[in-house]
Write a protein that binds this DNA or RNA. Structure first.
Length: 258
DNA sequence: ATGCCGGGCGAAGCCCGA
């Protein structure tokens, strides 16, 4: 089973790239972030016509997350906050019904949180606390659980090509990292950390960053123990960052045994 | 090394991203 995650930075602008990615990599499940479209502007039919079941949570201008699946989708959940709380469109979760080998996946667009010492950073940490609560509930199901997406966290100094420049960045703060680590320490595994012993980037700023290969590793797959048992491979598809008018993120792909 | 990119909104210039 091929599961991919990709921050596309506008689904409308990147639709052709998504189509090319699907043709080339044939994911069974595709987690998308930063749709930058309200529900009525999400190209629903065009995505479904690629052969997928589709769920999404859009928002005007900002954020927006989606899950595409070749298998039936059940148990959709789109909120981490209680119903009367204002919530940005940053979380969508479902059960992927691959007969006896189903998986529970979430598409995550964790807040950026910059600048630090602002309400945006406070919101980031608050959001991470909410994610931690849900991640614990999911862990207690003892299922194949896969949390994928743009976490806006560099877990270690080695997850940036220029860590010195990141000292005051929300993605690098000790509080950000410890909250991320708390989720891991409950019993999740960073798929890249498990399989690779080098650092590669999933994000490169627009401009010259990609040609200079100066980037960050911030798009992650966090796996429950049951998911880790099934993990076979992980790759960053840099090809899609090298296209004309690309997203600033590359897709990340994992293979999960059936 | 911050917004010099890039996208959304809406029709100029500002908000947002990492």
């Amino acid at each position: 089973m091929i599961i991919a995650t990709w921050n596309v930075n506008s689904i409308r602008v990147r639709l052709n790239h998504v189509k090319e990615f699907i043709q080339k990599n044939k994911p069974d499940v595709l987690l998308l972030q930063e749709l930058k479209a309200q529900n009525s502007d999400v190209p629903k039919d065009e995505l479904e016509n690629l052969g997928y079941n589709l769920i999404f949570k859009g928002q005007k201008s900002y954020n927006g997350v989606a899950i595409l699946s070749k298998f039936p989708i059940h148990d959709v959940k789109t909120n981490l906050y209680s119903k009367n709380e204002e919530e940005q469109s940053r979380y969508i979760e479902c059960w992927i019904d691959n007969s006896n080998n189903g998986v529970r996946v979430a598409s995550i667009y964790l807040p950026n949180g910059n600048p630090i010492n602002s309400e945006k950073f406070t919101y980031k940490i608050d959001w991470m606390n909410k994610l931690k609560i849900r991640a614990k509930e999911l862990l207690d199901y003892e299922e194949t659980v896969i949390l994928g997406g743009d976490f806006n966290v560099c877990p270690k100094d080695t997850d940036a090509s220029n860590p010195e420049n990141m000292k005051n960045d929300a993605l690098f703060q000790p509080e950000t990292r410890s909250k991320f680590r708390e989720i891991l320490n409950m019993g999740y595994y960073d798929a890249w950390e498990i399989l690779k012993n080098n650092s590669e980037w999933t994000y490169w700023d627009y401009g010259r960053a990609f040609e200079q290969n100066k980037g960050l590793r911030i798009d992650h797959f966090l796996l429950s123990p049951q998911a880790l048992d099934r993990l076979q491979n992980i790759n960053i598809e840099k090809y899609f960052r090298a296209l004309e008018k690309p997203s600033d993120h590359a897709p990340v792909i994992i293979n999960i045994s059936d």
